[in-house]
Design a protein around this nucleic acid. Structure first.
Lengths: 240, 240
DNA sequence: CGGGCACTTGATAGTAATCAAGTCCGGTGG
DNA sequence: CCACCGGACTTGATTACTATCAAGTGCCCG
């Protein structure tokens, strides 16, 4: 494959679309056609990609970086609903139906996006029914996570909620470390609080508690070393 | 259409499948083929249709009655995730992927179900890609609701959560009444509590409060007359 | 009409939000 | 490379609220 088929900065001579699971059933020729449809766009940390209440006219696929999807309440409080990273897509719901977005999406760091225009996406969906099945799978995964979140928020102690988030981050962002798993936190304390419906002070206190118990070790503000995973799992299961 | 095409007790000479939105794109002939695949089954109040952690081998469509989908926590607490009524389906997630069920489903009253066997369902899905789109729409609606639930549980006062449920029930089960909207509650106080992560006592207290404020009027244990909808909407928006 | 269960209401205790200082981290500029 | 500055984080004290425990009341079904 010596031919240039995708000229985005981050994937020279590769089909970046191939890395996206929703296109995994397509062959190279089909992927090349899709690659032609893709527009690349970069966002700086803090920039908004999608605005709550406004219409969306493209499917967003993350090539590099990460974003949060959230809603603002009247009194300025924020509820984070999803964290998206490399390979994840969003905006699909506004394209499938013709509705405005339920949430805003903000870049948590420098983020590169592949955009597919609404119309092209709808044609793709018709031409390749397999894509619909892949999207359905991803929607099911999101339902799974939200169901877990509702259960956690509804029936678990506050310490269990904090433990659950740390476990989620360990699985998603954790890297092996001589003494356990090193987690690079994608969110600030306030971000974590807004993800699980608590205040930043409470998150702070509960994390300090977990550190005192020898379960985790905080390394600066953005790094957590998970020392005892099974203890964290036990804590996450604790009902209120 | 004098020919007998569906012999279930509750829909003589009708295509009950036609009433289901996921089959709405099909014509009569196709519906007749589906009607042949359907098995009818009845459940009594309190009976379990699906067991959390066990595999599911059919798609369940409610012909009559209603059910709740819920999870049990270790300490016996319960989190209700969905309420399903006439025309709703469930079990689809275990069929799309090959996984055990995330939740149990229990009949809240005498309930009649149309069952489509896993294999038949998968064939249908391949033959009629439109069905996948319809299912996707429904999955999106469930995501919408769960996102709202997470936001409500994460950022709203307890009174707002109770108000939200009452509004949801008013829209879903409410009937016009000279003095407002009469709501036949699908759940007991404890059920409502398990739906929004509170205790039955708190639900009781907050409903009494709403009654004192003249927003609702309780009529026995299962009926609520909504007197002032806009007041309830204001209460539901109140952040904690 | 009677009995059981769901619901209501009250008192108390526990816990997280809030308000308020401090401290630390990390980035910036000298 | 170090010192400094601002924002994020931690910790403490207090308040507010809901869970819990407990006792009555009333609805609904047989």
């Amino acid at each position: 494959m010596g031919k240039m088929i995708c000229n985005c900065d981050s994937c020279h001579n590769k089909l970046c679309a191939r890395q996206i699971s929703i296109f995994s059933s397509l062959d190279d020729q089909q992927l090349m056609r899709i690659a032609d449809l893709i527009i690349h766009k970069g966002y700086k940390k803090g920039e908004l990609l999608i605005f709550e209440g406004e219409s969306v006219n493209s499917l967003f696929i993350i090539n590099k970086g990460q974003t949060k999807a959230f809603r603002n309440t009247q009194d300025g409080r924020e509820q984070i609903l999803y964290l998206f990273s490399e390979g994840d897509f969003f905006g699909e719901r506004s394209l499938l139906r013709d509705e405005v977005s339920n949430y805003s999406v903000e870049a948590l760091e420098e983020t590169h996006i592949c955009l597919i225009h609404k119309h092209d996406f709808q044609v793709l969906l018709k031409e390749h029914p397999d894509i619909a099945l892949k999207i359905m799978e991803e929607l099911c995964r999101r339902l799974d996570r939200l169901e877990n979140t509702v259960e956690t928020m509804g029936t678990r102690t506050v310490e269990a909620r904090v433990s659950s988030v740390l476990l989620e981050f360990a699985d998603k962002y954790g890297k092996p470390h001589p003494r356990g798993i090193m987690i690079e936190l994608p969110l600030s304390r306030e971000g974590i609080a807004n993800y699980i419906g608590l205040t930043r002070e409470t998150v702070s206190r509960k994390m300090s508690l977990l550190q005192d118990e020898g379960v985790i070790e905080m390394n600066g503000n953005k790094k957590v070393l998970l020392l005892d995973r099974s203890a964290l799992e036990r804590a996450a299961d604790r009902a209120s």
